[in-house]
Structures are given as structure tokens and as C-alpha cells.
Amino acid sequence: RLLGRRHARVVHGPVQLTMAAALTKSEVETYLATVDLRGPLEGALNAAISAQAKAPIEFFGAYFAAGGKAAGPSTALTKKDVETYLGSVDVRGPLEAALNAAVSFQTKEPMEFFTRHFAKLSQPAQSGLSAPAAAPTGPQLVDVSSLTQIAKDYLGLLPQPEKPTYRTALVQIYVRSAPYGGSDKSSNGHRYDMVPFANGMINAGISCQPIHYVHEEHDTFFEVVKNFDALIVRCNPGQIKADGGS
């Protein structure tokens, strides 16, 4: 179980691992058998629940930077308290993205890796890494310039294949009235799992362009996306309505 002893009576699923790009199932299983990733992540989840953290990314950044220690007192919670919290704040999304990133990089130092990972999410402009501000373009890609660019950057996204087998898009919804665009988003406007999904496609020789659906551009959006071979829709239920659409 993902939750530790303190919340043992609350039934929740484990952090889910999406197959890391360019790794076989056997390679992933071998790696997970030698490096404990779930322990630190489960500790972070329990700490966030106890603290009722409203900003998971910042909380996890501070948690791992402190060596796996949460700032402030923990709270004794009932099963209903935990379920209510998990229903209102997405804490699993960022942890699952961190798990997949760690597997992809085959890190041997999980705590150090997670510290850097969440620091980058919290402050992408200060991470010291290249974070292209413009959406990926090129003659091999679909022209999406008529759509509003919501994302602040594309940190971590691999270069698109020069001759893609297929052309795909990963569609996201940014809720403008919500902090960061929704509890499933990083501070750059993308979902936490955008990079693992898109890079998995890219490593398979398939282009994958992250885009956002904006309801005011409905007709334009569907004119653009008909040029893709496939769409990967990654949004939480109700996000279009929450952003003012229908």
C-alpha cells in the first residue's frame, strides 16, 4: 500500500509506474529490485497528507530538501479527513511523475534525485537547465501557431524526431481560475506527467507536441488537431467546465 502505518486503514492504490521510455519491462523490474524509490515517495505522500499540504510541489521540494522531514507538526486524521483531502488535492500526480523520471534516469541516489526533481518543478527558470520557451516547431511537425501557447516552457522535453513515424499531440487543459492551472499542473503550465508521456512517444520515433485546449478557440483547435495522426488527452474530469467551457 502507498500509505504508511499512520493511515493504514484508508484503502488507496499504489503510486503507478508508467513504463519508462527506452527501457524494457525486465530492465525496469531489475532496477526497482535494487533501488528503493517507493519508500521515499510513500514517506512524502504520508507527510503531505498529515500536513494537509495545499501546494504539493512546494511541499515535496521542502520535504526532500530537508532529507525526508516535514516542516511543522503532523495532524492526527480520520479516514474521512484523508479521503476528503485526497479528493481535493492531487498529491499522487507529482509523485508518480517523479517515480517515472527516477526510473528513466536509473538514479542510484533517490533522495538527491527527488530533491533536484521537485526543485526544478518549483523554480524551472532557476534550475540551470535549458528550458525552451517556445513550442517545438519544424517542417516535420503540425503547425499549432494558431493556438494560444499556455505553457511557460518545455523543460525536459526531448527534441522531436526528424522523420516521425506518426505525428501526435498531448492535449492538456489549463484552468485559469486555479493555482498553476489546476492541481495536476507544474508551475510551467504542463501536467506533471507530460514529459514522461511525450518523451516515451519521441523515443519510439513518434512526434508528440504538447498543446492546450482553450474553449474560446474550440473551432480553431479542431481544425488544427485534425492534422495529427492521434491525440493523447490528459486532463482531469471537469477541467473544461472549471475553465468556463462546456
Rank of each mutant, 00 (worst) to 15 (best):
R1D: 06
L2H: 10
L3I: 04
R5I: 05
R5A: 13
H7Q: 14
H7W: 14
A8D: 13
H12Q: 15
H12W: 14
G13R: 08
G13V: 00
M19L: 15
M19E: 12
M19Y: 13
L23K: 14
S26A: 15
V28S: 11
T30D: 15
Y31E: 11
Y31D: 09
A33T: 10
V35W: 03
D36A: 12
D36Y: 04
D36F: 02
L37W: 07
L37M: 12
L37R: 10
R38K: 14
R38C: 03
G39K: 12
E42C: 12
A44K: 10
A48R: 11
I49L: 03
S50D: 13
A51C: 11
A51Q: 14
A53H: 05
K54L: 03
A55Q: 15
P56L: 02
I57V: 14
I57C: 10
A65L: 10
A66N: 15
G68L: 04
G68D: 09
S74G: 13
K80P: 02
T84P: 06
L86M: 12
G87H: 05
G87L: 05
V89C: 03
D90G: 01
G93H: 05
A97D: 09
A98L: 08
L99F: 09
L99E: 02
N100L: 02
A102R: 11
Q106I: 02
P110F: 14
E112G: 11
E112P: 00
F114S: 13
R116I: 00
R116S: 06
H117S: 10
A119T: 10
A119N: 08
A119Q: 13
Q123K: 13
Q123H: 14
P139Q: 08
Q149G: 07
A151E: 04
D153V: 02
Y154N: 05
L155C: 10
L158R: 08
Q160M: 11
P161R: 09
E162K: 11
T168Y: 04
A169H: 02
Q172N: 13
V175H: 03
V175I: 12
P179M: 14
Y180A: 14
G181K: 02
D184A: 08
S186K: 10
S187E: 09
R191N: 11
D193A: 10
M194W: 03
P196E: 15
N199R: 10
G200P: 01
I202M: 06
A204F: 09
I206A: 03
I206G: 04
C208Y: 02
Q209F: 07
P210E: 11
H218T: 09
H218G: 05
F221N: 08
V224K: 11
K226V: 15
F228S: 04
L231N: 02
N236Y: 05
P237R: 03
G238K: 07
D243R: 01
G245Y: 02
G245A: 05
S246I: 14
S246Q: 15
S246G: 15
